[in-house]
Computed example of a mutant assay.
Amino acid sequence: MAIRLVTIDIDGTLIRDDLTVSQKTVEKIKKVMEKNVMVTLCTGRPNIAAKYFAEMLGIEGYQISQNGAYIKHNITGNIILHDTLPRGIAEKIILICREHKNFSLSLLYEDICYYETLDELAMHVNLNINLVKPIRVDDINELIWKERKNPTKILVTGQARDLDSFMRYLIRLYGSQVNILRSGAQFLDIISAKASKGRALKVLSEKLKIQRQEIMAIGDNFNDIDMIEFAGIGVAMGNAPDEVKKIADFIASSNNNDGVADALEEFIL
């Protein structure tokens, strides 16, 4: 069955380690779209960052962001999915995060980011990776109740070793009530228990009336696993951990060696 939709992770997949997209990858994506194959980006970043890369590549359509919690059309602005964190649980997790001085905490409502204190790493992540300008507030929990709506995501940044143990601790406490996952070595995302890239891809495929067998998904990290498993053709990047490679149908070259372009050539072009 021919591929009708390709979904591509951004960090560690679409972009190289220097945060750029290779010219070869740009050209192959354009050729895929010329064959009337839809392309969507699927990222842990906020929608504004997904939209930035989509526009750079000439992609028009729905983009999946916030690790599957949010789907928005980058031209019409139509939103077909927004899974949020219950305010009560978000408040409890924020209180726990405050007790750990090694971490910085950001709270996101769609593309709006709030913080109390941010270290240099967290500020870099928000400005240069998430492409949002953080807004400082005195008390994030007070903001949650003042907004009278549930947040999209809690982002915790810190050193990888510290986040490993903190993630295990949070999972023991709230693993059944929220989805806690790593979208990078120094990033910890806390989103709705329902949200994942795989679920978002299912929602999008039903909206577009595309069967699983007509989808190719390309990713590199643990948060890409259920997306890769859902697709008819699941592709792991050469730089992916072994656990991700094991569930893939095809292993491409690394993100620094045009892995996305290789996969598109192998199955579509």
Rank of each mutant, 00 (worst) to 15 (best):
S104D: 04
G61A: 02
Q63V: 11
L81S: 13
K30H: 13
T76V: 01
P86C: 08
L155F: 03
E116F: 03
A69I: 07
L269I: 15
A54M: 13
H73W: 03
G88A: 09
E34V: 01
I15Y: 04
E116V: 04
I93H: 09
R161I: 13
G88P: 00
E120P: 00
Y169S: 08
D119K: 08
R16K: 15
A195P: 05
I8D: 08
F222N: 11
D18E: 06
A49Q: 11
M1H: 12
N179A: 03
R172W: 02
W145N: 09
G184C: 06
T40D: 02
E120K: 14
D9R: 07
E27Q: 14
L170A: 10
I129P: 00
I29D: 02
V260D: 09
N257A: 15
V37A: 03
R87E: 09
K35H: 10
T25M: 11
L264G: 01
R4E: 13
N221R: 12
S65Y: 07
T157P: 02
I79F: 04
I129L: 14
R45Q: 08
K197H: 09
R199Q: 11
E214V: 01
I247H: 10
N126S: 09
F53T: 03
G238P: 06
A195T: 04
F267K: 05
E142R: 14
G198M: 04
L19G: 00
Y52K: 12
I233P: 02
L81W: 07
W145E: 10
L95H: 14
I29G: 02
I48Q: 03
R172T: 09
L163Q: 06
Q213K: 15
I94L: 14
E229L: 12
